[in-house]
Design a protein around this nucleic acid. Structure first.
Lengths: 357, 357
DNA sequence: TGTGATTGCACCATCGATGGTGCATAATTG
DNA sequence: CAATTATGCACCATCGATGGTGCAATCACA
């Protein structure tokens, strides 16, 4: 309470103030005092002193001593996209729900940087790591193994560690069917009106492409060669792919599947360079959900992975002794849909003022 | 290298292996060895041993001893929105650029939770804190002061600590002028065709409202009463506001200003419940940038705060002895604009495969 | 060859918290 | 009332790294 409290109080300060030994203070404050047979009187005296001096444990010190830091890491490729930012949001709640403190970092799709950021997490002695979308999962896995760090892959298949992944194959089929069905209501459709853009040589993209082709096969009987264009997870490269397509065919495909919302941003760039005619009659599917994208001026079907279920399962898998892979079914979101998200769970403290007109 | 390396190597391990004392090992590994007059030979022997056993310092221990953790915190209200997720992304690069490790947390617009999450950061002995959009800035400030923690406010005015804020007033004026000008090209416009939705009783909202009214005043000569509706930062409440307006007037305002992209999501929900006619001729301004929102089927002007400049200044202000407030001019983004973002700085390791058609 | 300076490093206390061990004192039992 | 058990707590080493201090060995110089 006193004004001079510049430095944080420690158990030693409270020890002096209360007359108890530091270890007694520690055990009172960390809850182990019952089994250490500390009297209720001593405990409550220390607790009230602690409150008075707003003591909070130095978790670095605790971690050092007990080799459990209470930190859980989440490695993302990037933050600024609705899929990963919802994941960060949900991860934070899930971690805190379990009494853990989340540390979210981004590897920016650079194997080198992924490694460095994970090393930095390990240096702070995180207890476990969630890996969501590393470019080099095996490299990260390797580092975790070396450090004896429990980890799970999220939205990524794991050869060595447990994984929770979206059912990319099934989601891609649902999405492909939906856009083809919609496009067919707008006019005759052939196999060469249906394309896929984005992705790279990773598990998710491969599965999505397989689902895409499977549906095309069953609808059209045949698959057009060259109906996919792999652009990496780069808006710029994806925009170029659309430019190339447009230059060649004088229009965009009637119906196409975009591998992720990051690739979708490539389409936005293309749109920024053309007027409405270039995309007046297209039907788009995107494997990712973004509420704003859902309301663009053409039908956009989206797939929303069930992030909270994926993370919940992830926490369960951490306990699991041997590697398992769990698949979670994503949701198909029809065009013009504004789903509720983690934002809606917030309580806004200021009651809205209604205007009187 | 050996397989048995379960536990991480410490300076004591390297001390035994090298024959040098632990303190020598430490000083070699943390770079202070030159001024401790350790010979080059000893140093390089230890360094190669360290590499061989891939030693990384236990930063918890270092932090405990040196009372500098190397952690910088960022308190966000929420992650999953383009403004804050770009901020997280940029913050991470800026922090790492300075050799610091970022810890990003979200207070979810709950004063209680803001306090708790900041306490948890302090418990891990972060060196400094960036506060971006706390619901109760003074409460958080109070905690920082108590803990002797240097902190700056980002996008928030600071009575007590330094702040970097967007020029809300000027941005709002630019935005309001832009949407009015655009709407006037579509038809005659009166003061009561121009509204503002969203925000709450905070500095940013007040400034924006002031700018909004100033422009209306100068354009129309008078300000319609009840032309703003404060809804809090809640998509749900904002959607209700649009519903109410629509029920009352049979249409949306011809021209309106949305206080933030979170409130914009309320408009999306409204849109999901109505067909295109309800918003066929509207002109919208939003004080936040989202690339997808920029391409919605009506003109959307957006304001993009200059996040990287704000954060850079923030790091500078941490050094500053006395509180300062710096204002950064945001950018007006015309409709149908897909700006590059932090994503574009990424190097995507997989070269795109171009399809042959 | 003796004296002083320099080099190269070891020693040790310390950061804050933890938990095993041990020892008084008090309560219970026969 | 002596012997036993229970209660309540203090003591101490420890986690890994840091940096001030001190000391032996080597070197320079007269």
């Amino acid at each position: 309470m006193s004004e001079k409290e510049r430095k944080k109080a420690t158990i030693y300060d409270l020890s002096v103030l209360s007359g108890a030994s530091p270890s007694t203070v520690a055990s009172v404050l960390n809850g182990t005092w019952r089994k250490r047979r500390i009297s209720k009187d001593t405990a409550s005296k220390i607790l009230s002193l602690a409150r008075e001096h707003d003591y909070t444990a130095n978790l670095q010190a605790r971690a050092l001593r007990s080799s459990r830091s209470g930190l859980v890491g989440l490695l993302l490729p990037v933050y600024d996209n609705r899929f990963f930012s919802s994941m960060a949001q949900t991860f934070e709640s899930e971690a805190r729900k379990r009494g853990l403190v989340p540390m979210v970092v981004s590897g920016r799709r650079d194997p080198e940087e992924e490694r460095r950021t994970v090393e930095s997490l390990i240096a702070y002695a995180i207890d476990s790591l969630f890996i969501a979308g590393a470019t080099d999962p095996d490299g990260v896995h390797e580092i975790c193994i070396r450090a004896g760090l429990p980890h799970v892959n999220i939205d990524l298949p794991g050869k060595f560690a447990s994984s929770v992944i979206a059912d990319n194959r099934q989601g891609a089929e649902a999405l492909t069917s939906a856009i083809i069905r919609h496009a067919e209501t707008l006019g005759r459709l052939g196999s060469n009106d249906v394309y896929l853009f984005g992705g790279r040589d990773d598990h998710a993209s491969r599965e999505r492409i397989a689902g895409f082709h499977a549906v095309k096969q069953s609808v059209f009987g045949a698959v057009t060669k060259g109906d996919i264009e792999i652009t990496g997870y780069s808006p710029g490269a994806t925009a170029l792919a659309f430019d190339r397509f447009f230059d060649k065919h004088g229009r965009l495909p009637k119906c196409f599947f975009i591998n992720s919302s990051i690739n979708f941003e490539g389409l936005l760039r293309f749109m920024g360079r053309h007027d409405g005619e270039a995309f007046g009659d297209i039907v788009v599917g995107c494997f990712d959900y973004d509420p704003f994208a859902s309301f663009l001026p053409f039908p956009v079907y989206m797939i929303r992975p069930n992030i909270s279920k994926m993370l919940e399962r992830g926490f369960e898998l951490l306990e699991e002794p041997k590697p398992l892979t769990i698949m979670i079914t994503p949701e198909l979101v029809p065009p013009r849909t504004a789903l509720e998200g983690p934002l809606d769970a917030l309580k806004d403290p200021s009651p809205p003022f209604v205007f009187a007109d």
